[in-house]
Every structure is written in C-alpha cells, then in structure tokens.
C-alpha cells in the first residue's frame, strides 16, 4: 500500500519522479536504468531541482568534482538537508562516498553515520569485478568496482542493514532511507538494485507509480527538466 503522506517535507505533486544528480559522472546510465524501471527522471543540477522528487540517485564519477560543483551553487547544503529530512537517496561509488563520513577529500554530506574511504582498493589497475551474493536476490549480482571505496565503520549501528559483502567488506548497505553501493549497478543491465531502491521510495516501478497518481488524484503533470 502506497502512503503518499509519508514524507511531509516533500509534498507529492503529479507524476512520481526520481532525481539524478547530473553534475558529472554516470548519471546518463542511471537515468537509462531508472527509465527502464518505468519511472520519470529529472536531472538535478540546482537546489530547486530537488523540489517534489520522490527519491534521488547520486551516481558514480569523481566525488571531488561533484562536491565542488554542488558547493558552488548551494546544492551541497540542499542535498544534505534533503537527505536528513528523509528523502530516499541511492549513492553508487562516488555517491556512497559523498553520503557517508570520512576525513579525506572531498567534504562529505554526512547523511549517514558510516565511514567510507576513497580509492581504498588502490588505483585503476586494482579495479575489479566480482559476482556478489546480495540479500534477497536469488542469483548473484555482477559487481563492477572502479577505483572503489570501502565502507570502513559505522555498519554496527542499529539502522544499518548489510545487504552484501565482498571479501569481508560491506558493498551494499541500507541505512533507513539511504542505499549505498560501493560498486556500479548502473554499468550492468541488471535492474534489481534500482528496483530495490524504488521500493524504498515506495514506487516500485511503473505499477506503484500508477497507484500514487490515482491516490493523489493528480491530473497535474510536472514538466520534466530535460
């Protein structure tokens, strides 16, 4: 059952829309994956682009570049308050780095109390792929790790569910409404993790989207930003 009143800070208007931070990185791949799941997407480049979205993806790419560009236009603070106010956010690789905590560059959003260390496996020659056994999926997920970070600490807190491990390190975790992957589901055709995130946004692909539209009785559609 979809409850449209779950996020009081984010009034629902019109079609359910997932924002994708589109400053730099693998945002075109995330947009393609989300559209294949049947949801509307919007490129987020300014604070006002966060209005009325039902969830947000922070893609892979260079975390220092994203932090830099987001800070220049006030988007960094807006992302932090959106996350802390309960907007569901899915971060992959650089996105996971930004959502967590850490002492090295870049400055972090600290939306979750989880320490993420950048480039923790080494440089590009240490990038790798691995079949991952993830909680609730029956078959392995093909994980591509590129200059990947390692989730170092904080997973013992009560809100944190470890959904997958690789060589003893958590690689997919859910902490409240935040989903973090240290690998890149957007580089594969496998939509299971995107669908898991959409369930967290309570609009598991197109069907639930329909329910929300019916529930809010909305004829009002919102202009897509791109």
């Amino acid at each position: 059952m979809v409850n449209a009143r779950r996020f009081p800070d984010l009034p629902r208007a019109g079609k359910p829309t997932i924002g994708v931070l589109a400053l730099q990185g693998s945002f075109p791949l995330h947009i393609a994956s989300l559209q294949r799941c049947g949801v509307e997407t919007r490129k987020v480049r300014k604070p006002e682009d966060l209005e009325d979205i039902h969830g947000l993806v922070i893609p892979g790419g260079e975390s220092t570049t994203m932090e830099n560009l987001a800070s220049r236009c006030g988007l960094f603070d807006a992302l932090r308050s959106a996350g802390r106010n309960g907007l569901p956010i899915f971060g992959t690789c650089a996105g996971a780095i930004l959502l967590g905590k850490g002492t090295e560059r870049p400055e972090r959003l600290q939306v979750v109390d989880i320490e993420v260390r950048r480039n923790a496996y080494g440089r590009q020659v240490d990038s790798f792929n691995a079949e991952l056994f993830l909680a609730s999926f029956e078959t392995p997920f093909h994980g591509v790790f590129i200059r990947a970070p390692i989730i170092e600490a904080g997973t013992e807190n009560l809100d944190c569910e470890i959904l997958g491990l690789h060589e003893g390190h958590p690689v997919l975790i859910r902490n409240g409404r935040i989903l973090l992957a240290t690998f890149h589901p957007e580089l594969t055709d496998d939509l299971r993790i995107h669908k898991l995130f959409l369930e967290m946004c309570e609009l598991a692909s197109g069907k639930a989207g329909e329910e929300i539209r019916e529930e809010s009785g909305a004829g009002q559609t919102r202009e897509n930003a791109f």
């Binding site: 730099q24 693998s26 945002f27 790419g61 590129i146």
Partner: peptide
C-alpha cells in the same frame, strides 16, 4: 567503466604538483 565515470568532466594537462592541486581544486575529473 572508468571512461564512463569521467563523463561530464574535464581532464586537465598539468606539469607539476602545484598545477595538479589547482586542477583538482577547480573540479577536474
């Protein structure tokens, strides 16, 4: 995959550590 992670970014030529710091601080990928 790494090439796809650089999308939407700027790669800058640098000749020393100082220029590398300027590039990274400016948001180079």
């Amino acid at each position: 995959g790494l090439a796809k992670m650089l999308v939407g970014g700027v790669v800058m030529d640098v000749t020393n550590a100082e220029q590398a710091r300027i590039a990274e601080a400016a948001g180079a990928v």
